[in-house]
Amino acid sequence: MLGRAADNLYWMARNMERIENMIRLIRTGRTANMLSEAGKQGDNIWEMPLEISGQKELFLKDYGEISGGRVCAFMLSDMNNPVSVKKLLSNARENARATRHFLTSDVWECINRTWLAVKELTYSDIKKQSVDDHLDWMVDRSYMFKGMLSGSMRRGEGLQFSNLGLCVERADHTARLLMVHFSNAEKNTTQMGGLQVRDYYRSMVILNALNAYKAYRETFHSSIELDKIAELMILHKEVPRSLRACVDEIADVLRALNPTASVMKEVYDLQYRLETVQIAQLRRVGLDHFLVDFSKHMDEISLNIQHDFMMVQ
């Protein structure tokens, strides 16, 4: 397969995954807002999508004060925001268009039809319809995309590079989300385990945004605690969005592509670290240190993937 085609498929998948992540974040934000007045205390819940996407500055410049509606408009349909859902979808479609001949018509049509439906939508159109319905629909489209990807594509490089994009993006997102969360939480909490009310709601947001609330309850059978969330989302390989699960998947895909690729060493190192480390150790050095370091590792892996397989010039 052409290196450039692999690159496009990889980014198509990353863009699609990023869309789903963003939608989940907005959806949980809306739920939390409705859940309780307490949720609104302290840090504004709507800052999170802005911080995680790294676009807070642009938002403040273009929109001024933070509010739910403004953040939704900015994150859903503002083409000036380089990581708005609409912009990401347009990017994903361009990636898909560049590699159309590798995609089954199911996958292509799924992206193309989603784009056609969203292309002309403004935020006020979405509001008229019902924002929640729109968010649900987008999540469905994302599942449909992934389903078609794994259900219709030949088990070859095309699918592998798409899968790689999905899990790299997922790992990146989980790490960013945890980073934002714990850096705030650690500032405010004197003692781990003793959750303040607003931290409780923030933690709920995290679990919901990572689709891991159910997994948490099943795993711990106990109340929500910050270090347990960290343990779950970093080390538990059976939780799909945990860092460990993502890195395992990255290792599997890369091994299938080329077991002797130079990037494998980096991946195995990271995998070994996640397998052997304990949450108490991470706590002692500071979770945010670990997460920053993890993100750096992921960036290197991403660069090496491009170097090893995509012959990017």
């Binding site: 397969m1 052409l2 290196g3 450039r4 692999a6 490089e157 590079f161 592509l257 080329n258 397989f309 995509m310 012959m311």
Partner: peptide
């Protein structure tokens, strides 16, 4: 000779 850059070189 002409070559293309592929994922396998």
């Amino acid at each position: 000779y002409v070559y293309m850059r592929t994922t396998r070189g």
